[in-house]
Structure formats: structure tokens, C-alpha cells
Design a protein around this nucleic acid. Sequence first.
DNA 1: TCGAATAATATGTACATACATATTAAGTCA
DNA 2: TGACTTAATATGTATGTACATATTATTCGA
Lengths: 232, 232
Amino acid sequence: MTDAPASHSWRSVREEVLRRIAHEDWRPGDAIPNEADLAAELGCARATVNRALRSLSDDGLLERRRKGGTRIARHPVGKATVRIPIIRMEIEERGALYGYRLLDRRMERAPDALRPRFGPPGEGDLLHVIAVHLADGRPYALENRWIVPETVPDALDQSFEDLAANEWLVRHLPLTRAQSEFFAINATDRETAALGAAAGEALIVHRRMTWLAERPITLVEMTFAKGHTLRT
Amino acid sequence: MTDAPASHSWRSVREEVLRRIAHEDWRPGDAIPNEADLAAELGCARATVNRALRSLSDDGLLERRRKGGTRIARHPVGKATVRIPIIRMEIEERGALYGYRLLDRRMERAPDALRPRFGPPGEGDLLHVIAVHLADGRPYALENRWIVPETVPDALDQSFEDLAANEWLVRHLPLTRAQSEFFAINATDRETAALGAAAGEALIVHRRMTWLAERPITLVEMTFAKGHTLRT
DNA sequence: TCGAATAATATGTACATACATATTAAGTCA
DNA sequence: TGACTTAATATGTATGTACATATTATTCGA
């Protein structure tokens, strides 16, 4: 006998489905009842079941196909959302004192390896800003950023001496798309100087590019000091 | 005059809002009209607008509060979803020949640094599996995994000599929660031996833990060969 | 028997309505 | 003035109905 849960909310339906997955009533690859049947069983409207199953599908736990029905994902989740905070806020949330130092600011073309990513606007000079973020006076992250003046003309008026480009951009411009990459590098002269890293030390880099509509805004490489861990 | 878009779909509403953000009609921090007004303006039902705005809110582009209304996010969440594929499929998708070699398999306690993550089940012996994944015969990633027998008793019957633990787990067990970490290490003896890396070379590590309900399933560290980039 | 047309089916979406809930604003009384 | 109560408001959700769409299953003709 299946007794309906007290609540008819889509969240309770979601929990019930999760419970059955956790209880291994339903296993990877298994088809589950259709929305109408589930709604009848749980005593709620189909739209409510739809909302719950769609939520689980978005989370990668279910796979749904029209006419094919819904089944437990065979290749689960496969998703990890990494937060990309403003560095200042990240540091202050740790209770540390935030510091910022501009190292360089100039107009120049993007390096060959990155230029194609900017498309046509990348053929001209970009605003190249290098700065270091400090936590309690100690190097925390090295920011190496290219800004596309075509998309962000106001940026040319900014010195970025006191306010990180990071933060200025966020406050002035919306964005509609972002893409990230993560990789590891051995510290070179630049990192040893700016981050106080030992030569050759392994550092993690977060490279991120953002767009406003189809126009590229900025590409930034954040290189973190030794031992930094990015968490989901 | 605001002309309604031909389509009344929530996607078209989403696109219209994105268009206004891209066009900078609405800028970070700005409040936008409430759902009822937008629905009237665009000629659709409030539920449709709600669906569209909720979608954008999930993507971190909008911030919504009851009674407070909806505004353009000031700190675009910058969610980056990292895919966590089955290594074999990832390699084969690149058109390379997949290979796999089990290096070690034994029952032992988790190291002190990781043990607390498993909670009570971590106090006993865990199944510790080390293996290397190959692409066209060259080392691709080193898999260092602890499996919780309490949650996955069937794993004890598996030799993991031919089938990666990675894949076996995915095929046999659902999961309800996952958490990831990314960091960089300098290659030590273990990595030089298993991955053919030079000593001290910077390598990126993806550490992932999964749960079934509240029970820990497994914790795995995937260390990738030199130059690997994780993409969103 | 094979292929194309057609029916059947499960999910996807739109809408109107109603009510729930969080949060802010307004009002009231000491 | 200030604490507290009450109203107003925008989003959040549940429901029934209707139809759209993708995909599978079936039927039928050559």
C-alpha cells in the first residue's frame, strides 16, 4: 500500500522519488511510473509531479524522454557547480583582511594562444590588467585579465589601481554567458614574484571567459597561491 | 509601444529578458517589472513569466525575493558546471583507445586527512583501489579510490582487474549527492611511476565524494596527466 | 517482407484561477 | 518616538484543462 505523503508539494514528491532511489526500489536504468500514475498514487496533480521530476532531471538524477518515459540516470549527476565569487568577498568571508595591488595595466594584443577566443574583437588591442589579491597581507591570487574595449568602453577610463577589475566589471556590466577551465601549472618567475611561490610549485589556475550576448567581455586567469582548493 | 513576441513560450520570454539585459536596458542591481506586468506586456500568462524568470534565477542572472521583486543579479553567480564523465567514455570520445590497469586493491583504513569525511563508516576498513586509465597506451589519469563497504557490500566481490571501479559503481548504484574539489599537486613518486610524469610536474586533481541518501559511497581522487584541462 | 503512413503515448507547455508565504510598508497605541 | 500589529504586495505553488511535440508502436499497402 502506498500512502500519500502528507504534503502535496513538488518538493515532497521530489523527496519521495529520492527516497525510492536511495532505498534502491529504483536502480540505474530502471523506468519509473509515468507522471499521471505517480500523480494518482501520490494524490497530487500531474503538473506537480512534472515539476518534481523536471527538477531531478535538471540535477542529472533522472533521464526523461517524450513517450519513452522517465528512468533513473545510468550515468549519474556528472555535474558540479563551482562558485566563482568576487575575490574580495571570498577573502573577507574567511575573516581575513583584503588587500589589492595593481601590477600592470596596458593596451596590447592578446597572446596568440588566447586571441582566437575573442573572435573579431580580439584582433585589436585589449586592455590587459595584472593584479594581485592579498589576504592578511599575504598573496592569495594573481589576476591576469584581458578586457575587450569594444564591449566595455568605460573600462578604459578606469585605472584599476584601487578597485579590482574583477569587482568593477561585476558592478557595471551584466553577463549572459560564462565558461571556465581549470588546470595546473608550475610556478614560473611571474608567480614566484607575485604570489611568493617557490619556483616550480604546483598552482591551480581558473581561467574564465564571459560574454554579454555574443560579445566577449573579458577573459581572466586567476592563479591561486599554493595549496588552494576550489570547492563546489 | 512594446510589441509582443510572436511566441508565448517561456523560452521566448527568457530570450526577451536576456535581450534586455544584453541591451543594457536593465543593468546589475536594477529592479525589473513584476511578473503580472511583464505578463501583460508580453501577452502571456503570469505562470509563463514565472517559469522564465525562475529559469534565469537558477542560472544566477536574476535575484528574486517575495514582495521585494526581481532584479538583475549584482554578483553574477558564475556557476560553472563541470562534467564528471566515465573516464573510458571521455577517452573514447576523443577517438583514442581506452586502456585500464589495476595497480592495487586492498582493505584498509582511510588516511587521517580523509577519514573524517566518511563519518562513522570511515572508522572501519574501506576498500582502497588504485588504478590507471590509459589513452592510446599512454597514462591519462590515476584513480585513487576509497569505497565504503557498508554502503556498497557488493563491491567486495569485485576484483576491479578488468572493469574500472569508476564504471562498476556507476552501473550498479544510484547516487543522490556529490561534491567536488579541485587542486594542484607536484608529481611525487607515485605519479611519476603511474602517470609517467616528471618529478615535481604540476598536475591537477579532481577529488570527488558521493553519497546515497546520507550514506557515503566513495571518495575518489583523479589525478590527470600533465597538461590536462578540466572544462565546464 | 519492407517501408511508409498512422495511431498511441508520455512528456512538455500554456493558461486561468486560487491560495500560500515571505517581506516590506503603513498604521496604531502606549 | 518606538515597539507592535496589520495591511499590502510580489513571488511561490497547486490544480484542471487543453493542446503541442517527440518518439515509439502499429497498421497497411506495394
